[in-house]
Amino acid sequence: MFQITGPALSRGGAAVLSPFAFALSRGEMMGVVGPNGAGKSTLLRAIAGLSAEHVPVTLDGARLGRAAIGHLPQAFSVHSALSVLDCVLLGRRERLGLRVPPDIIAEAEALLAQLGLARIADRPMTALSGGQQQRVLIAQRLFRQPALMLMDEPTSALDLHHQLSALSELRTYARAAGAAVIVALHDLTLAARFCDRILIVAHGGCAQPDSPDKVLTRQTIEPNWTVEPEFLRCRDGAMVIVPHSLGQRHPAAK
């Protein structure tokens, strides 16, 4: 069990979040949702150890070091001519010597093949689109194999197909590696579909995380996002949340 307990967080000198505490199970994927500026990125950066505030993270009572926490920032633009495969290898930079063992290279190649990136393995990062760069950086973090993975809007530049495959890969990683994944998302439907629990960050605080059905309700969405949600169900029972501007929803949909 992961335990995360943090003090009040600030951004640029302004208070953003009040003190918080929550727990995650091994194999769990938790979504962090909230309106713009609520503090999702601030929360993830603090947990990753990238802010002035100290946020202790423990796994089964033992302190988790920074090396065991993976973090993908929201701003991902890369201006380096490093190849895709070199970029993925950097995920384990602490464990690499001057010579990279062939088995590590083979492992990186296998991961690229698994994520559908093998055909661009030799391409420089600067030659990739924003979406391709984002997929490579997700691959890099997966190659890092952290115990706790923090992803800040990892699907922001991805097309529909790759949004689904990226979130699916993250969930598979959490299950297979016994790790935990916290993913900040704007798309509430994707969050409801892929995350075991959802944490709402809004109005200067974090609510307690719970299952998507319990957290993503009209009572939480309307005041926090200032939209009128319409809840639909797919054939497989997955929840779809369609936002409408307040007071402008089509009467037939009510």
Binding site: A67, I69, P73, C87, L90, E94, L96
Partner: peptide, 17 residues
């Protein structure tokens, strides 16, 4: 390796620990 990682940008390098 740290210097190579820095070529990916400061934010990325920091996030890689």
């Amino acid at each position: 390796w740290a210097l190579t990682a820095l070529r990916l940008g400061e934010a990325n390098a920091e996030s890689l620990g």
